[in-house]
Write a protein that binds this DNA or RNA. Sequence first.
DNA 1: ACCCATAGCTAGGATTACTACCTATCCATT
DNA 2: AATGGATAGGTAGTAATCCTAGCTATGGGT
Lengths: 114, 114
Amino acid sequence: MRAEAQALKGHLDVLLLATLNDGPQHGYAIKEALRDGSGGRFDLPTGTVYPALHRLERAGLISGSWSVVDGRRRRTYQLTAEGHKKLAGERANWREFAAAITTLLEPGPWPTAT
Amino acid sequence: MRAEAQALKGHLDVLLLATLNDGPQHGYAIKEALRDGSGGRFDLPTGTVYPALHRLERAGLISGSWSVVDGRRRRTYQLTAEGHKKLAGERANWREFAAAITTLLEPGPWPTAT
DNA sequence: ACCCATAGCTAGGATTACTACCTATCCATT
DNA sequence: AATGGATAGGTAGTAATCCTAGCTATGGGT
């Protein structure tokens, strides 16, 4: 596994939802958006992206529809109303989570008040 | 599983190492330090903490020794030299990881320069 | 006498990202 | 014409790790 794999767990869904918040996209484009938007850090294999999208669709957070562009079939996804709500919640959740970790990671101990 | 469970995956080790950076501690005290230091957010079950400490010890990042305090046996852990190095690397890694996620989560799309 | 906090432990379950593999079209290079 | 890469989709099975649920044991409070 990639080293980043475990770190990403539980945070991939928000990233996918956030990407779709910029407008409907198909899976491959989402994968590229994450890669480019992260400076290459999140260059996820398709075996990660597609199953995750299926999961989000099953959960009713995104909805997909087939189309054909340049002879290639595409499945374009967009956020549902639920997906928008979920995204808002998860964004807030991330901020709190990140703040908590960052605080704990600050070098300590702090000087005890006397 | 707790909802936070997946989010924490891959980040627990840094938290444990960072806690031990404040001085040697035993498992139960580490658990409490994480709970209190996170405002209750990371109130981890012992079934999470102890196996993680064993993992870190096997990896040579911390070293433990038994002692008895008030009739209760304790296993006190401290960072090894490798553990200190690992902590420094993981701290830097967290900053980059968090920055990448936060950037991707910012509402977009940004206005395209013309 | 009982329960809770403290202190440690483990087996098995649940979740999720990854590896490795597959199909197919279009385009550029050989 | 043929080959390979980029695009676009997919799946089955593996690895990693956090949690649940259970256990032993001591000390202090009600």
